[in-house]
């Protein structure tokens, strides 16, 4: 009886020990509620230190990929993040991405030089490296800049704080102002000393001085020359009537990869155009004007009847051909246009 009771007691004891030992892992976690806090803090500190190192190495900007993004954004986080979603690679032909890149880096560099900075990191996620993240955020245009405050989680994307390029533009200054509204710290935007600009200015001054000297010395010859001014005027006119100012203001891509039988250098749509397109139009216009001038000014100077006839036919042929091409190009833009010249 006693044996039984002893064994019972022993088994009970054993069971208790077993239970205790089994639950020890859970208890220890229960227990060490303070301990992992320290652990997390250490982890965080490590992460921040790592990020800082990365940032310092790269002038304040951290290059991310999908994995690194998830890692950096993972929940225990006491720092804010600014992420630039971009597509720098040439095959995407993203002109605004390229334009904004140096401006962004400039603000980041300005930030990293600040003494009293709060915890904020600048990072760049290129489409090539972080396709998954782009999908996750449903980004179908680049560049975009998102701001993640320290507390936010990445899954809460609906109300993500986004920088509005459409309104504020691609300059560093409005971007810094936007950031200031969020972080409360004024980021000084120091444009790096512009050697190119200086060179251009110096060169410009030299050219100006030189042309003044030239004007004084040989002014009559060059600046009094009709050809000089007529060339300049004609160039300006051709550039303007082929829609260059539109490009200047709207910044369209130079051309697009061609697809489905649609050439890549004529934009579809009446109020849209590519950079290359305007150049093509300028060439067509100048060929037409050239043919007209040839008929007016060159032909009557030719003494030889055969040569004169040939010139007339060539000029007129070119005129008609190029005009037809021009109309054809116009029809691409405006499919309802009913008139044609040579081609149906």
């Amino acid at each position: 009886m006693a044996v039984i009771s002893r064994t019972l007691f022993l088994t009970l004891l054993l069971a208790l020990v077993a239970f205790l030992s089994a639950s020890s892992s859970s208890t220890s976690s229960l227990f060490a509620h303070a301990q992992p806090q320290n652990d997390n803090e250490a982890l965080l500190q490590k992460k921040v230190a790592r990020l800082e190192a990365k940032a310092v190495k790269n002038k304040g900007v951290i290059q991310l990929d999908s994995l690194a993004f998830e890692d950096v954004m993972a929940k225990p986080r006491n720092y804010s993040m600014v992420v630039l979603f971009t597509a720098i690679s040439p095959e995407f032909n993203c002109v605004p991405c390229l334009n904004f890149d140096p401006e962004y880096k400039m603000v980041a560099a300005g930030w990293s030089k600040l003494a009293n900075k709060s915890q904020l990191f600048f990072s760049i996620l290129d489409f090539k490296a972080g396709q998954a993240i782009f999908q996750k955020f449903g980004m179908n245009s680049a560049p975009s800049v998102l701001y993640f405050p320290a507390s936010s989680s990445i899954s809460g994307d609906p109300s993500q704080d986004r920088y509005d390029f459409g309104k504020s533009g691609f300059q560093a200054e409005p971007f810094a102002a936007w950031l200031q509204a969020r972080s409360g710290v004024r980021v000084p935007v120091q444009r790096p000393f512009d050697f190119m600009g200086l060179a251009v200015k110096v060169l410009g001054t030299f050219t100006a001085v030189f042309s003044v000297i030239l004007f004084v010395r040989k002014g009559r010859k060059i600046f009094g020359s009709k050809y000089f001014w007529s060339t300049i005027s004609m160039i300006i006119i051709f550039v303007m009537i082929s829609g260059h100012m539109w490009n200047q203001i709207r910044n369209p891509p130079y051309s697009m990869p061609s697809q489905q039988g649609r050439s890549g250098f004529i934009a579809s749509g009446f109020q849209n155009q590519f950079g290359l397109e305007t150049q093509i139009i300028a060439v067509l216009y100048s060929l037409l004007t050239g043919a007209a001038i040839g008929l007016i000014a060159v032909v009557p100077r030719i003494e030889n009847p055969v040569g004169q006839r040939a010139t007339v036919w060539v000029c007129m042929g070119m005129f008609t051909l190029v005009f037809s091409i021009l109309i054809q190009v116009f029809k691409l833009k405006n499919p309802g246009y009913p008139f044609t010249l040579m081609f149906r």
């Binding site: 829609g243 109020q271 155009q273 397109e277 139009i281």
Partner: peptide, 15 residues
């Protein structure tokens, strides 16, 4: 701003 098509549309061969 004016796209090139507007120039041609408004002035055709005169341009």
């Amino acid at each position: 701003p004016t796209a090139w098509t507007s120039f041609f549309f408004d002035l055709q061969m005169l341009i």
